[in-house]
Design a protein around this nucleic acid. Structure first.
Lengths: 190, 190
DNA sequence: GGGTGCATGTAACTGGTTACATGATTCC
DNA sequence: GGAATCATGTAACCAGTTACATGCACCC
């Protein structure tokens, strides 16, 4: 299971379930999501397997925390997963499902609205990732050469997010042009 | 639920569960997958809701078939879904999760192998979609202007598949270059 | 008689979401 | 006193996968 191995990887630096949730939301959300209700049972399961070790810790505010860290056995499991077959993952893309069937609405202007709406969302997600990339570059004059091995791999995934969102925006633009060409054709000889 | 509405959309032309499975595998797989064990219960559920009507039909080979078609109520439900809020879907991309954590292997050559392997898979998926597009263009001299409204929307989703896979291949190439630059740097100044 | 393709389904399981429950501490 | 944040968890549900079960018909 991917989630378990992602947790193993993240817990090379100790953290609590609550901390991990923030890591998902802040740094990983563009390729993986996880809820607290999924993280806590996973941590328990991994500890029972001997892949994590948990210990009590203080917290400034609120109740005591439980901080986990990967064990030697956990490291081995992580490495085995990293060396296992590439998994492409399966695409289930609701907006493509809608667009595929959208002739049902008999309205190219509705299709266009759908696409412009989609474009806006992709463009704003893209802008958010580009800001992250620019911050990295700004905070570090020799970027990206100076990156640690860990951050270098993180950079590659960030670049993936940027490339994919850029491609989605481009595809929306191409599609909007095609729709508008058809609208124009309809109007002229319709 | 998206699957139910996709079935509604596909069943504007009558088909059996078995037929639908082939449609998913042949025409829709690049943005949605479905197993027979998921399709059959869905058809029953939609019929009970009054969104589909099923009837017995003959089949040349093997047992009798059950062929479904969308009802007027089903059409209304489909249109309501098509006009509902855009859903972006959530990304869970196992290969990015692996790459994100791959510094654990302390081996840029392993990272490079991972990326070239990934590139090959994307490139061959891309080639398959490009063949479909070329067939469309070849079989129809006035492509894409001549497309029916339904096929025009299908074209847009096919173009999405092609654009996204092209972007993935490009990202792999960019990433491989970055990895190789780091390998070279490591080798030169040790 | 055996393999392949057509055809329909059920059962058990997995991974993930939503809703709920609890409680401490800090800031206003 | 109340909202926000820190913090941990459980229960019910939902969507999807894998494995299993059945049976006809056609071709070799």
């Amino acid at each position: 299971m991917s989630l378990d191995h992602i947790l193993l990887g993240l817990l090379r630096t100790p953290a609590s379930g609550y901390d991990l949730k923030r890591v998902f939301d802040e740094r990983i959300h563009y390729f993986w999501a996880a809820e607290l209700s999924q993280i806590y049972p996973a941590l328990g399961r991994l500890e029972r397997k001997g892949w994590l070790r948990g210990r009590r810790a203080e917290s400034k505010r609120g109740a005591g925390r439980r901080v986990y860290q990967v064990t030697a056995a956990g490291h081995r499991a992580l490495r085995a997963w990293l060396e296992s077959e590439v998994e492409l993952g399966d695409d289930r893309i609701p907006y493509l499902a809608k667009l595929y069937l959208m002739d049902e609405l008999h309205s190219l202007t509705k299709s266009r609205r759908f696409l412009t709406n989609l474009r806006d969302k992709f463009a704003s997600n893209l802008a958010a990732l580009e800001i992250i990339e620019r911050c990295w570059a700004r905070d570090d004059p020799s970027y990206p050469d100076s990156l640690s091995p860990a951050m270098f791999h993180v950079l590659l995934t960030l670049r993936n997010g940027i490339c994919m969102l850029g491609a989605r925006v481009k595809w929306c633009d191409e599609s909007i042009r095609r729709v508008e060409a058809r609208i124009a054709k309809e109007a002229s000889h319709g």
